[in-house]
Amino acid sequence: MTKIQEKIKTAFDQLEEAMKAQQHLDEGKIDEVLALTAQCSKFWRVLDDEHRDFLNAVRFAIEAKMQWK
C-alpha cells in the first residue's frame, strides 16, 4: 500500500468511526466531522466510486441532520 493509500484509508476510517458514533449530530463535535470530511474530500480525484458514494452520503447526513445507520 502506498503512502497516499494509507492516508486515504486512515482518513476514511476516522470519518466512518465518527459517523457511527453520531458525532455529526453533536454540536460540540460537528467541527471535527466537517474537518474529517474535508480531509477525505481532498483526495476526490483518486477515489473510487465506493469512497465517493460514502462521502456524498456523509454530506447528506450532515446537512439533513440524520442518524447514521
Rank of each mutant, 00 (worst) to 15 (best):
K29W: 10
Q23C: 00
F12Y: 15
A18S: 01
L55H: 11
K29C: 12
E16H: 08
K9Y: 02
K42S: 02
S41C: 03
S41E: 08
Q14G: 00
K20L: 13
E27C: 06
A35W: 15
S41V: 12
A11T: 14
D31G: 01
A35Y: 13
F43E: 05
D49H: 00
E6I: 08
E17N: 15
M19E: 03
K3N: 14
I8R: 02
H51C: 02
I4Y: 11
G28P: 09
E16I: 14
D49R: 07
F54T: 01
M19R: 00
L15G: 10
D26C: 12
K69C: 10
E16V: 00
I30M: 03
Q5V: 11
M1D: 02
E32I: 05
M66R: 13
E16W: 03
L25T: 07
K69M: 07
E32A: 10
T10R: 12
T10N: 11
M19N: 03
A64K: 13
D49K: 09
Q39Y: 06
A61C: 07
V58M: 09
V33F: 15
V46R: 10
A64N: 14
I8A: 07
E6H: 13
L47S: 00
F54V: 06
E16G: 00
F12S: 10
W68E: 10
M19Y: 02
Q67I: 07
R52Y: 12
I8W: 02
A61I: 04
I62V: 10
D26T: 04
Q67R: 14
H24M: 03
S41I: 04
A57E: 08
W68C: 06
M1T: 03
R52Q: 06
A61F: 00
M19T: 01
I8Y: 02
H24D: 05
V46Y: 06
E27R: 13
L34K: 10
Q22D: 04
E50I: 12
R45M: 02
E50W: 06
K9L: 04
D31R: 00
L25R: 05
S41D: 05
H24N: 02
A61S: 08
K9G: 00
A57P: 01
L25Y: 03
E50A: 05
Q14T: 03
D53K: 14
T10H: 08
E32P: 10
E17L: 08
E16D: 12
M1A: 02
Q22V: 09
A18V: 13
E32T: 09
H51V: 09
K3A: 07
F60N: 11
A64L: 15
T37A: 03
A11V: 02
Q23H: 06
K7N: 14
R45T: 11
T2M: 13
D26P: 01
V46W: 05
